[in-house]
């Protein structure tokens, strides 16, 4: 017992110093008002700093979730906007008949994970597929314009025929004068498409807005496509040759929305039967 005490006395002075120093520091911040205030203030400064740094760091981990939730929210708002503009003309009818079979468009947010521009037939790959209710035949848009049409889906991915494709043939309309034609790509410039079959007596001007016609079920009507960049009538032709500058550049698409429709397929099936009568 005495031996232990002697060892402690001989070697424990530094430990004793530290312990007593901690006690006195504790008393200082506990029982002295000035020092306590300074201590608490510094503590809060430091803790606040550390916490905000930590929050900053953590927020990076949630960036993807936030991005997704914003995309979903965008899709919801955009679909509301589209639905309202689609059904605006029939508002009177619907208020009378309470039409249950109004066209309801739903937008599914998706991200472009592969895109090409330099081929004759360009395709886009999206990161969502059949498990998110994407089906072939649905239109793909962004907030600035249209992108393409879904041609094939797997469970988690889908293939989209880009506007820059040989088979693209989208029914488009000149917004100002109402004439409609079909939009094709000539395979040269990825920012320019051609609007065909506009009769030459139409009043086309430079900068005219071109929108979707709504004659196909793929795209709702009045979605922005682009603007008239150049127009001319070739000798001996009855139609204009119109160059359309796309409003959504195909070079930098990231976030897209797939348009799903509650009456998808019904119209197509009906129109297939048309062949029998032609």
């Amino acid at each position: 017992m005495w031996k232990i005490a002697r060892v402690i006395v001989q070697n424990g002075s530094l430990v004793l110093f530290i312990i007593l120093q901690c006690i006195s520091l504790f008393w200082i911040v506990k029982y002295n008002q000035n020092q306590q205030k300074i201590y608490l203030h510094s503590y809060q400064l430091m803790a606040g700093n550390i916490q905000s740094r930590f929050q900053n760091m953590v927020s990076y981990f949630h960036l993807k979730e936030k991005y997704d939730s914003i995309a979903t929210e965008n899709a919801r708002i955009l679909s509301q906007f589209i639905n309202r503009s689609q059904n605006a003309g029939t508002a009177l009818d619907s208020s009378i008949n309470q039409l249950p079979n109004q066209k309801i468009y739903k937008l599914i947010p998706a991200k472009v994970i592969n895109n090409s521009l330099d081929k004759r037939n360009n395709m886009i790959t999206l990161d969502k597929g059949g498990s998110d209710h994407i089906a072939p035949g649905m239109g793909v848009i962004t907030s600035k314009g249209i992108v393409g049409i879904v041609t094939d889906t797997s469970a988690h991915y889908s293939l989209v025929m880009s506007l820059l494709h040989n088979n693209t043939n989208i029914s488009a309309r000149l917004k100002r004068c109402g004439f409609f034609g079909s939009l094709v790509w000539n395979g040269k410039d990825p920012s320019i498409m051609n609007l065909q079959a506009i009769q030459k007596y139409a009043d086309v001007r430079l900068g005219d807005t071109i929108v979707t016609s709504g004659y196909s079920i793929v795209f709702p009507k009045n979605l922005l496509i682009g603007f008239v960049d150049l127009y001319k009538v070739e000798a001996g032709s009855f139609t204009y040759k119109i160059d359309v500058a796309l409003s959504q550049s195909m070079t930098n698409i990231e976030q897209v929305y797939v348009i799903s429709n509650n009456s998808l397929g019904e119209k197509e099936n009906l129109e297939k039967r048309m062949l029998r009568y032609e």
Binding site: L20, I23, L25, F26, Y31
Partner: peptide
């Protein structure tokens, strides 16, 4: 009436 201040200084 300054608990710990003198004690800490003496220790140092």
């Amino acid at each position: 009436v300054s608990p710990g201040v003198h004690a800490g200084a003496c220790l140092w």
